[in-house]
């Protein structure tokens, strides 16, 4: 299977271990990634929060570049995923806007690219059984809560992802790896996102609540697919009860016995290695 790949800015910096782990897992699962040529930033929250047209035009530039090779485009970052789905929605619904944006970007939007998050590609195209068949190291004792956050799911008519109040895809992926995902009620809660620099105290409070709820659910770690959520969970929690967080692909790579996980875990702010060693999942 061959798909276009849009890493986005975070995966080249603070979310580096997400980029590396997505690539490792895809290669192990026979998914060939082709990076979108000369991509630019999707504009993230700052564009749509302050300038609507810019928030459609920036993703449109990349969609048009990706349309040179129609088909699936894998977008691991939940924030980028949301911006692309939203831009496609507006371009489909509003013909006048589409004309205007095409003029600004200098290309035609043909709507030939399907924007997909790797959770969905692994779950729907590879499948839980095939994944379970490839597991080299059962993740026994690892009890993650799946944290989907906002941007993969809402608004549901635009994201067309998993159930927007009770998503299960990531939990099932974790289960296939031999982990023991815990159920909790904060799967789709907000971490405060980009308020992390401009209004840190809000994010600290929201992340603190997520940690408490995760512990109450009996979890020993959190898994996510969003670099903004990850950065907040990994750096904005404090105190003894802080649980380590992972990108879901790091956990997959660990279970599939791939090279790399330990070097990625070193980049985390909240070190997950003591937990993994105590479970005999790392030497």
């Amino acid at each position: 299977m061959k798909v276009s790949y849009y890493p986005g800015c975070s995966l080249h910096a603070t979310g580096k271990e997400y980029d590396l782990s997505v690539k490792a897992v895809c290669s192990a699962l026979g998914i060939e990634l082709k990076e979108v040529e000369d991509w630019s930033c999707c504009g993230a929250s700052s564009a749509h929060m302050t300038n609507f047209k810019l928030s459609v035009a920036l993703p449109a530039r990349n969609l048009i570049a990706a349309e040179k090779e129609p088909g699936d485009m894998m977008v691991p970052c939940a924030a980028c995923f949301n911006r692309f789905k939203s831009a496609q929605h507006h371009l489909r619904e509003d013909a006048a806007l589409k004309t205007k944006i095409e003029e600004i970007v200098g290309g035609k939007f043909q709507d030939t690219v399907k924007v997909r998050n790797p959770i969905d590609i692994f779950f729907s195209d590879i499948g839980i059984d095939a994944l379970a068949g490839k597991v080299k190291k059962n993740l026994t004792g690892l009890k993650p809560v799946s944290y989907y956050g906002c941007l993969l799911l809402r608004p549901p008519e635009i994201c067309e992802f998993d159930n927007h109040e009770q998503p299960v895809m990531m939990d099932k992926l974790m289960g296939a790896l031999g982990a023991e995902p815990r159920n909790w009620s904060c799967k789709t809660d907000c971490c405060g996102g980009s308020l992390t620099l401009g209004k840190t105290e809000i994010v600290t409070r929201l992340v603190g609540k997520l940690m408490t709820m995760a512990r109450e659910a009996g979890a020993n770690c959190l898994v996510t697919a969003c670099p903004v959520c990850f950065a907040n969970l990994d750096t904005r929690a404090s105190g003894e009860g802080t649980l380590p967080s992972f990108y879901f692909t790091e956990i997959m790579a660990l279970a599939l016995g791939l090279e790399g996980p330990e070097s990625w875990f070193k980049m985390h702010n909240t070190d997950p290695r003591p937990l993994l060693k105590s479970l005999n999942l790392l030497p």
Partner: peptide
């Protein structure tokens, strides 16, 4: 302060 979490519209 709105974090654009889209919970309200959903």
């Amino acid at each position: 302060l709105c974090a654009s979490c889209e919970t309200c519209i959903t």
